[in-house]
Computed example of a mutant assay.
Amino acid sequence: MEKVIKIVLAILFFLCLLDMPYSYFETVRFVAMVAFGYLAYVEHKQENQGLMVAYIVLALLFQPFFKIALGRSLWNVVDVVVAVGLVASIFYKLKSEKTD
């Protein structure tokens, strides 16, 4: 389930690079907040405090209620970095599962 959430989020973040209506960005922020909250909960259950804190920070960054004004170009950088990090975390988790 976490893999699917991470892939969907990564796709949503990459689509933010396109010229989309503002309502798309608002929807992405809300979906990201909920998804990162869920991922933080999963990491808490697995007692991985580092990733849990990272997902909480990302949920707070993307939350739609108190918007953080970074500007379009900086938000594009954030979207790409987070999307690449999500995809990398899938491969990292797969690699660590194979070695266990």
Rank of each mutant, 00 (worst) to 15 (best):
V82I: 12
R72T: 12
G37I: 11
L17F: 11
G85I: 03
V8L: 10
W75N: 04
R29D: 01
V57P: 01
T99L: 04
V87Q: 01
Y22V: 14
F66N: 10
A40Y: 14
V82M: 00
H44D: 09
R72N: 04
M52F: 04
Q63Y: 09
F30Q: 06
S96L: 10
W75M: 05
S73H: 09
F36P: 03
A54I: 07
V82S: 02
T27V: 06
V31Q: 02
A88C: 00
S89L: 06
N48R: 06
V78K: 04
L61F: 09
A54Q: 05
Y24P: 02
G85T: 01
L17D: 10
I90T: 08
Y41G: 01
V78A: 14
L74E: 13
L51A: 11
L94N: 12
M1G: 15
I5L: 15
Q63S: 12
Y24M: 00
R72M: 08
V84M: 05
M20P: 00
Y55C: 13
P21A: 07
I11V: 10
L58P: 00
P64G: 01
L17W: 12
G37T: 06
V57E: 01
I11E: 08
A40V: 02
E97K: 11
V28C: 00
F62H: 12
F36R: 03
N76T: 01
I68V: 13
M52Q: 15
A59E: 06
E97P: 00
A88H: 07
L17R: 02
P21Q: 06
F91S: 05
N76G: 04
L17M: 11
A59H: 11
V4N: 13
L70P: 05
E47F: 11
M1Q: 11
V53D: 14
R29S: 07
F25A: 08
V80R: 03
Q49N: 13
G85K: 07
Q49E: 15
V78L: 07
N76H: 05
M1A: 14
H44E: 14
S23V: 11
G71S: 07
M1K: 13
L58M: 15
K45R: 08
K45T: 13
Y55R: 13
F30R: 10
I68E: 04
E97I: 04
K3V: 15
H44G: 15
V81W: 01
S23F: 13
T99M: 05
L15S: 02
K93H: 12
E97Y: 12
V84C: 03
H44R: 09
K93E: 14
K6P: 02
